[in-house]
Design a protein around this nucleic acid. Sequence first.
DNA 1: AAAAGGCTGAAACGGGTGTTTGATTCGCTG
DNA 2: CAGCGAATCAAACACCCGTTTCAGCCTTTT
Lengths: 216, 216
Amino acid sequence: MAPRSPTHDETKQRLLFAAGEEFARVGFGAASVRTIVDAAGANVSAVKYHYGSKENLYLAVWEFAAQQMVSDEPMPSVDDFADPREALRSFIAWFMRLVLTESEEHPWAGQLLSHETVSPTPGALEVFVDNCAGPICEEITRIVRKIIGRPVRGKTVDDLVYAVVALCVNPKHSREILIKLGHPPPTTRAGINRLAGVMAEFAISGLDGFASREDR
Amino acid sequence: MAPRSPTHDETKQRLLFAAGEEFARVGFGAASVRTIVDAAGANVSAVKYHYGSKENLYLAVWEFAAQQMVSDEPMPSVDDFADPREALRSFIAWFMRLVLTESEEHPWAGQLLSHETVSPTPGALEVFVDNCAGPICEEITRIVRKIIGRPVRGKTVDDLVYAVVALCVNPKHSREILIKLGHPPPTTRAGINRLAGVMAEFAISGLDGFASREDR
DNA sequence: AAAAGGCTGAAACGGGTGTTTGATTCGCTG
DNA sequence: CAGCGAATCAAACACCCGTTTCAGCCTTTT
């Protein structure tokens, strides 16, 4: 049967958005279905009716956030740059903006990612790794390989890739601690870009060190 | 009144140890009092009787873990080394062993620290920052300053300090993701030391980059 | 022997969770 | 207009949580 009015599945969408904000804010486990439906101005049973369960709603949020992420600001590719160091600079700035930015219209992907990293939800972990973590790490791997420019022993290149990831995501993960230590991570575009610049130079020098050093 | 038997406060101690393992495993919020008392072979009311509340039990665990940490393997000081780079190597190895080691007799401090970083408990956050995060960051700051060897603009030195911290703690925070990506973080002393070596060289080169570069 | 107090046990309390039910409203269609 | 079905709602369900109560055990003390 056709929708009963032009505002059909308005509730479904409000539910998705309210859930996105709440899941991004506190993570899957700590989020309450009742809090979400209240924010959406809907009834508890609406989540079962429209999505089946809290977990399915979470997966729908992830799906939406993932596609919003790639359409919002596409991931830089190493192929777009002549200098792999410049590619790393761009990539780190993009990654940190994705993770750290806090604004109304910013996609939730960064915050969802942050929570999912620390305490993964069995179902969403695969979606997350396939759509986000995997591609990001692959791209960083390509950049790192180009910067080092010579073969490196086994795990080492992976270690360096995850070192770069660590520089980008840690300000988000350690947010509360950094605030207590009087060094809150930036949330505005300008502040994030500044920090990303420092991290990029740090990473480039670090990788150049491996480029000029012999494996022992 | 005197203890009723030589095995007095046996329960209190079993409670502390069971709580330590559980809090270290899943964090304060996700830990269940009933799970803890079951593991300790005690009754629910025992936690109220001996510690007053779940939160007090958590604080007791923190207290115990903190003193166990410093007595187990003391934090390296930059003053013990002629070369600050050597100090950084030692410090990173110590820090990563603290955070990553998973064994029976290892202090829980590292894992507690990991959970507390991501989702701080209002009460324990101050204790944690004062006793753990603060001293660690101060020591890294001293090392970083010595390596760079010249004054650096405002926030930059702090950014670099937290970059070093990021390298050390991220393998723990992102553990589940890294496992899914086929690159599980090490848990044995040898594996941790190897990874710490890579991170130390990466960090040293990164810092040396800042040492030889002009502020813009 | 009797009293006192440290300690433990089962059960319940009040509140939160995700989920489910069944009735009801409302717009479209035959 | 009657009837179907999509959508919503209040209420309840079953379960988990941290906390509390209180009776009772057992050792020590008087």
